[in-house]
Simulated assay, not measured.
Amino acid sequence: MRFALDSSHTDFAASIDSLLTKSDLPAVIRSWNAGDTAPGLKVWQRLAETGLNALTIPEEHDGIGADAIDLVVAVEQLGRHAVPGPVAETLAVAPALLAGVAPERLSALAEGALATVAAPPRVPFAVDANVADLVLLVEGETVSLAAAGESKVSVDQARKLYTVTATESLGTTDTEHAFDLGALATAAQLLGLGSTMLETTTEYAKARKQFGKAIGSQQSIKHHLAGVAVKLEMARPLLLGAAMAVRDGSADARRDVAAAKVACGDAAYHASRIALQVHGAIGYTQEHDLSLWLTKTRALLTTWGTPSLHRARVMDAL
């Protein structure tokens, strides 16, 4: 099986990376944390202009009709920059749900509308329902429009969680497929988060000196960072393989998505622990940018399926 990405994927990823690099995401995230979502919504508008929001939406509904590989390539870049907002919900879950119950609403998503989804008990709260243009509630196979209720605290200040209440039933569809897409997109975000934490920690280790020498020259630091790199690189083919399985409608797609979610989550969490260990306590302070990546990683570990849930799915498949 071939996992190499072609030039269209790498070019699209590079364009998203360039846009986000110029957007000063740490400042945008801190504004979002404080309740000022305007800078973040402007970033989402610029992303929509690249065609990101239209990726998985069929062409007959003003979308691009791209596949799951395009999705994970793009979402990994959003993870690398820790973009705030309902990423997996807007780009993966809501399009899949609406395609089955209300395809006439897909055009709005393609044009840049944000969507969020709650699917209790596995996804009990809707993230950023306060800024989403569309709030959906999944109960079994039933999809409904919903209204935001009480807010809940998240370890990631950029993830505002809300209870939701159904207001209008849209119909029934294959909600398990949408759940799998949510897990796949979250896995891509986690891989991106882990990659950035490795890069920033490596640069810090090169610059930080103790007793006249860069701490990165110490063998123990090198080994820790190498271990992170290995975990991330071993998770990547699982992510791409899962995307291929989803694209091809493989019977093993659910198993492969679960394996990817576990592997990417483990790799990102390991990257976060090593990043904090190398930086020291300053890395967890709100003043340091690393804290923005650490808290998002911790929050996404259990989003769209906990590690134990996805491990159980792999075991059931075997």
Rank of each mutant, 00 (worst) to 15 (best):
V123Q: 11
A102L: 06
Q157I: 06
E104I: 05
E176Q: 13
A126M: 09
V123I: 15
S154C: 14
G149F: 06
K160W: 10
L137I: 09
V87I: 15
D67Y: 12
S169D: 09
L134T: 13
A147N: 10
A146V: 12
R122M: 14
P124Q: 12
T167Y: 05
V73E: 01
V72I: 13
T142Q: 14
A110F: 09
E104T: 11
V87G: 08
G171V: 11
V87P: 07
P103G: 11
S151T: 15
T175K: 07
L170D: 02
D156M: 08
E60C: 12
A68D: 04
V93F: 05
L98P: 01
P86Q: 07
A74G: 12
A129R: 05
S107G: 15
A146P: 03
G171W: 10
A132C: 09
E141Q: 14
V117R: 07
V164W: 00
L137W: 03
G112R: 01
V83Q: 03
P86I: 11
G100V: 08
D174H: 12
A74W: 13
P95I: 14
A82Q: 08
K152W: 06
G85H: 07
R105H: 05
K160S: 13
P86G: 05
L97Q: 03
A94G: 03
T173A: 02
A118Q: 03
E139H: 14
L134K: 01
T175R: 10
T167C: 08
P121C: 09
H61Q: 13
P121R: 09
V153N: 04
V101E: 00
G149T: 05
P120K: 13
P120N: 15
T167N: 10
R80G: 15
L98H: 01
K152H: 15
L137S: 11
P84F: 09
E76R: 15
T165N: 11
T173D: 02
A99C: 04
R80D: 10
G85I: 10
E104A: 15
D62R: 12
V155N: 07
R80I: 14
L71D: 07
D133S: 15
V73K: 12
S144H: 06
E111S: 14
D133I: 14
E141N: 14
S151R: 13
T163A: 15
V135S: 01
P95F: 06
L170H: 06
A68Q: 06
P103S: 12
G112I: 04
T173Y: 03
V87C: 10
A132T: 11
E89C: 05
A88E: 00
R122I: 13
P103K: 10
G171I: 04
G63A: 14
P86N: 07
D128P: 00
G100C: 12
V164F: 04
V93T: 11
V127Y: 01
A132P: 08
P86E: 04
T172L: 06
L106Y: 00
I69F: 07
I69S: 07
H61A: 10
G85Y: 02
P124R: 10
V101A: 08
P84G: 12
L145G: 02
A148P: 01
S144M: 07
A147W: 00
P58K: 05
L137G: 06
S151E: 13
G63K: 08
A102D: 07
T90N: 00
V72Y: 05
G100F: 06
S107M: 11
S144L: 04
